[in-house]
Nucleic acid binder design. Structure first.
Length: 294
DNA sequence: CGCCAGGCTAGCG
DNA sequence: CGCTAGCATGGC
């Protein structure tokens, strides 16, 4: 086992690990105390996952991120948590309205994640009409049932299934894992990826072309595509229009409602500051979802 | 019991 | 193109 630390003071804008991993962006981590998405901050608990075949354990202790891994996973952590992002610079693009001020203070230290593309694609296909905590349980079941097992220090950890592993599961199996009507979407999309069409191939295209590319996957509309672009492929301008943001538009930005998803999306992207509108949206989403601000 | 959750697809006009 | 019924599941 390798271990190490990352000084939070050296990160521009620091980090709040709890907010970053429990704000409904990433569903690939679990908490060693089993209290994920219960609204409680971990005290001594670790966040744990398997990425690229490596076990990663990380927790926040005072002014450090402490990590353990099957090898030196610090570069992996820096990549996954976007530790190189200059948070103050990004948040300085937030418009000056009370909603944004509240969200910025409420979620101070939250970083947008950079998760691997295939798990993100499947996670957000599963997210349709589903609460955050339940998306996490669905994805955890997929990992524990279908993914590789990797051990660290005598304990087992589970990777998200590969496209081949997920494609090999029947729709019936996926329904037993409580995916509901999303089971055939996941099965069909896993099959597409296993046979050569990869979501990461959306990268490099213009934002709207990348979004269109992703909608070829079964169960992926424009909203899910925006989530993949923002939380995996680094399109920080992508603003997913979910029910929370739609309610906020209705109540606070009614003039941004242009009817279609694409037109409303473009309008709200400007309302949210443009280049980093998706980053801003992630703060607003977490603020709205976990308070009674609406 | 009804309502809602990080929506999408297929079928219709 | 836009509109809508139907779709699983569990917590409140």
């Amino acid at each position: 086992m390798e271990t190490g630390t990352i000084d939070i003071d050296e990160l521009a804008g620091g980090i709040d690990l709890y907010l970053t991993l429990e704000s409904g962006q990433s569903y690939l981590w679990t908490r060693s105390d089993g209290q994920m998405y219960t609204g409680t901050r971990p005290e001594d608990a670790w966040y744990e996952t398997v990425i690229d075949g490596e076990v990663i354990r990380v927790r926040q202790q005072d002014d450090q991120l402490v990590w353990q891994g099957t090898r030196d996973v610090e570069p992996l952590i820096r990549d996954l948590l976007r530790l190189d992002d200059d948070l103050p610079a990004i948040l300085s693009t937030m418009p000056t309205a009370p909603l944004f001020e509240h969200a910025r203070h409420y979620a101070s230290g939250l970083r947008v994640v950079r998760d691997p593309a295939f798990p993100t694609l499947i996670s957000f296909i599963c997210s349709a009409q589903m609460r955050v905590s339940r998306i996490h349980s669905m994805i955890t079941r997929l990992r524990e049932t279908l993914g590789d097992t990797v051990t660290l220090d005598g304990r087992s950890y589970h990777a998200f299934p590969t496209p081949d592993q997920l494609a090999a599961a029947s729709e019936e199996t996926l329904r037993e894992l409580k995916l509901g009507y999303r089971a055939p979407y996941v099965a069909d999309t896993a099959d597409m990826v296993a046979t050569g069409t990869h979501p990461a191939d959306a990268a490099g295209r213009s934002y709207e072309a990348a979004r269109e590319f992703l909608t070829q996957f079964v169960g992926v509309g424009q909203k899910v595509a925006d989530c993949v672009l923002l939380f995996s492929l680094g399109y920080l301008e992508a603003v997913p229009l979910d029910t929370w943001i739609r309610t906020a538009i209705e109540q606070r930005f009614p003039d941004a409602d242009r009817g279609s998803y694409a037109a409303t999306s473009a309008a709200i992207r400007e309302k949210f500051g443009g280049e980093y509108a998706g980053y801003v949206q992630t703060y607003v989403f977490h603020y709205l979802r976990t308070t009674d601000a609406l």
